[in-house]
């Protein structure tokens, strides 16, 4: 069997073999979190930064005990931030939390009903973070013009939504995602909206460099099984993209030859 090769998936100068990035939210417990993430094969894992619960048992397990910074590339997010200032503060806290690690997922949200990106605040935050030495993977709308602007500023990955965060509605505007892929020279990842394996495969078939998802695994009836499905879907979609799909036809084209039929 031929060993198939691919170009490396590179984020901010580091090569990764998995093109699936996963979040750590919404799991039943840390055991399930750890098991699902291991099953997904993901190497880059997102988490959130929140105030410590001061009444809490200080010996309670910590997320980073399960998702070790030695084993995974951690990607702190700015979820829950509605303006550039809060997002920048959150990233600086995350950098301190991770001993100087400067790769972040910037997301500045517009409102808590849609969690749609506020691109004005996102652009402001990106500018400050890039000037402060962060490597910024940026969650944004599927607007190619905004995506181009974020790339020109120096963001290391452009991450348009497929549909609303946590909605599981898949990729609502594949044409825009394709436009972003075609114009970008940094990695493009669909982030948000993936509901099931075919959505992840579709993102990769559109030419995305990767997929970032959380709820689709965490809220599946069997998260471990879905983690495996997502791993395979991203690999399958990537191979399909590299292979180049057959042209669509308006009429049938038999796979078996007409010649030599017994009724000929």
């Amino acid at each position: 069997m031929t060993q198939l090769t691919d170009t490396p998936f590179t984020i901010a100068g580091r090569d990764f073999s998995s093109r699936l990035l996963v979040g750590t939210g919404k799991y039943k417990d840390f055991t399930e979190t750890g098991a699902a993430i291991a099953q997904s094969g993901a190497e880059i894992v997102t988490f959130a930064v929140r105030r410590t619960n001061l009444g809490q048992d200080a010996d309670a397990p910590n997320l980073l005990d399960v998702i070790s910074p030695r084993q995974y590339t951690l990607l702190p997010n700015t979820a829950g931030c509605y303006n550039a200032k809060d997002a920048v503060r959150t990233c600086r806290l995350a950098r301190e939390l991770l001993d100087g690690h400067n790769l972040v997922k910037l997301e500045v949200l517009g409102d808590d009903h849609t969690l749609y990106p506020n691109v004005v605040e996102t652009l402001k935050a990106a500018e400050t973070l890039l000037a402060d030495g962060f490597d910024v993977m940026v969650y944004t709308s599927d607007d190619p013009i905004v995506a181009r602007e974020l790339e020109a500023m120096g963001c290391c990955a452009i991450m348009p939504l497929g549909s609303l965060i946590g909605s599981g509605h898949g990729i609502q505007n594949p044409h825009n995602v394709r436009l972003i892929v075609e114009q970008s020279s940094v990695p493009v990842l669909v982030d948000a909206g993936i509901g099931t394996a075919s959505d992840a495969a579709m993102a990769m078939e559109l030419g995305c460099d990767g997929v970032l998802l959380n709820s689709a695994i965490a809220h599946a009836r069997d998260p471990l099984r879905m983690a495996n499905a997502m791993k395979l879907a991203v690999e399958a979609g990537r191979d399909a993209f590299l292979a180049g799909r057959m042209p669509r036809r308006q009429s049938a084209d038999p796979s078996s030859p007409f010649a030599g039929r017994i009724n000929g």
Partner: peptide
């Protein structure tokens, strides 16, 4: 003063 830590998130 803010004291923060990592929690699950996507």
């Amino acid at each position: 003063i803010e004291v923060v830590h990592a929690i699950g998130g996507g």
